Simulated scan of single mutants.
Amino acid sequence: MATTDSLFDAAKAAMAKAHAPYSNFPVGAAILTEDGQIHAGCNIEIVSFPEGWCAETSAIAHMVMAGGSRIAEVVVVAEKLVACSPCGGCRQRLAEFSSPNTKIHLCDVAKGIVETVTMEDLLPHSFATNSLGDAAA
């Protein structure tokens, strides 16, 4: 079974592959699915901001392409922040595939996990498919 250490290592390895020539702000994320698989991603910038991908978005894409659908745990690490929190768009993306109790670990490159919050802490009033009514059918 994967540990938070292996999630952190996967996020750091992904961060090392980030394409961040404009912001010089590499970020890595790793997702643990409910079936124990790890999917990592990095931010990918393009000159036409904000059309690039965040690390969390890349990790979610890898998870979906591998057939995963539910997130059990997330690690986010950035080279230049002590505790990098997902942006607003990524918070909603993560909420789509997780539960309010899903743990989100905010990490420092050297220290590892600095803070752990839940999805509910990050996005207390997220959109949910059950709030869409007939539109979700």
Rank of each mutant, 00 (worst) to 15 (best):
H39K: 13
I104L: 15
H62I: 00
A13E: 09
A95K: 09
P50Q: 14
H19K: 12
C107R: 06
L94I: 11
P50E: 13
S85F: 06
E73H: 08
E96H: 10
A18V: 10
D35S: 14
G88M: 12
I46N: 14
T118K: 10
G41Q: 02
E120V: 06
Q37H: 11
A110N: 07
G89Y: 00
G89S: 09
R93K: 14
G88P: 03
A30V: 03
A14E: 06
E96N: 08
V64N: 05
K111R: 12
V117T: 05
I113D: 05
I104A: 07
I71K: 09
R70V: 05
A13Y: 06
F97N: 00
V109L: 12
I44V: 11
V64W: 00
I104T: 04
A11P: 04
A11H: 10
C54A: 13
R91Y: 00
K111H: 07
P21I: 06
T116Y: 12
G88T: 11
S48P: 00
K17C: 03
L7F: 02
D121Y: 13
Q92K: 01
A11W: 06
S58T: 01
F49R: 15
A14D: 03
I104Q: 03
S58A: 15
S58L: 07
Q37V: 08
Y22M: 09
A30W: 00
H39M: 09
A59G: 01
H62T: 01
C84S: 12
E34H: 10
V47T: 04
G52W: 13
C87E: 06
M119P: 07
A14S: 11
M119D: 09
A14T: 06
A11D: 02
M15R: 07
C42F: 13
A59H: 03
E51T: 09
A16R: 07
G36E: 04
A20M: 08
A14L: 04
G68I: 06
I31W: 07
G41M: 08
V77K: 02
M119C: 14
I104N: 05
S58H: 02
A59T: 02
A72M: 06
S69Y: 05
T102Y: 06
I44F: 10
F49A: 14
A72E: 05
H62S: 07
S98I: 12
E79Q: 15
R70P: 00
I46D: 09
E115K: 15
A55K: 14
Q92S: 05
P26G: 01
C84D: 00
L7W: 02
S98D: 04
